[in-house]
Structure formats: structure tokens, C-alpha cells
Amino acid sequence: MEQTLEIEEGQVFTTPSKTLTDAHFLFFSGLTGDNHPIHYDVEYAKSTKFGAPLAHGLLLAGMTALGGSDASFQINGLVFVEQGSHFIKPVKVGDTIYTQLTVEKIWPEGKRRFVRFATAMQNQREETVLKGFHVYQIVPKG
């Protein structure tokens, strides 16, 4: 018997909008060990074409978390199996970002079922800074 899903194609979920601070960068550097100067060294960053420290790509990918969106309570049984991110514009300290996750496709593959979300992150200037996707397997209860 097929499990009833609480999501359907076309639905859009949103994460809380957040202003990124140097503390977020520092925390992520500490956690992952990625302390390349482009993420925290203001003088170094000035010498690059970006002019200011940039958010880690994987930090931004992390900020697309489905569980951090308002879908949080209707994604039981969804198991994360794949993701991809295209980093379109730099994100710097002080930028305010949020992510929209759109249910793109729900499909079967043999006995398995999958869901694909399109992700899009926007900054305070309404610019899209990241586009990507998540794929989840729908795992039956029990």
C-alpha cells in the first residue's frame, strides 16, 4: 500500500530569512575546518575581486535545509539522498538570505519513490545567489 504523502508537486516551502554575520562564518569554519582566508580575512578579501569575505559555498548549501523550512512538520519519511548547488553570486557578511524549496517532481523507480525539490536562495536585493536541487527517497513507515 502506498503511503499518503503530505506534499505535492508545485508546493513551495520557505526558510526563515537570516542576516549572516561573521559569527556564522566563524562557526562554520570551526566546525568544518575550512578556514581559508577568503572566509574571514578582511585584508586578504580586499585583495580579491570580491572585496570582502565570502560565505562558504557549503554553508550556503546548508542554509537550503528542508528541515529548516516551514515543511519541517510534513516531511516524515523523506530521506536525503542527493543534492546539488550552483553558486551564482557571492554572499558576504551582512547579506540577508532565505531559501525557497519547490516540489519539482514525485516519481517511482521500481518499488522506490523519490521527490525532487528545486532550491533557490535569494538575498535582500532579490538577487538569486544559489540555485540547486535536493532529492529524497520516500521511505515507508515501519
Binding site: 526563515p16 530569512s17 537570516k18 542576516t19 556564522h24 562557526f27 551582512g94 540577508t96 535582500q124
Partner: peptide, 16 residues
């Protein structure tokens, strides 16, 4: 805010 899990816009979203 990250530690306790506050996602209230007044605390985390400067533009708001």
C-alpha cells in the same frame, strides 16, 4: 539565536 533555535525575524533578519 543559533544555539537556542530562535528564528524570529526581529532577532535574525536585519532587513525585516
Amino acid at each position: 539565536c543559533a544555539f537556542v533555535g530562535y528564528h524570529v525575524p526581529l532577532f535574525i533578519d536585519e532587513e525585516y
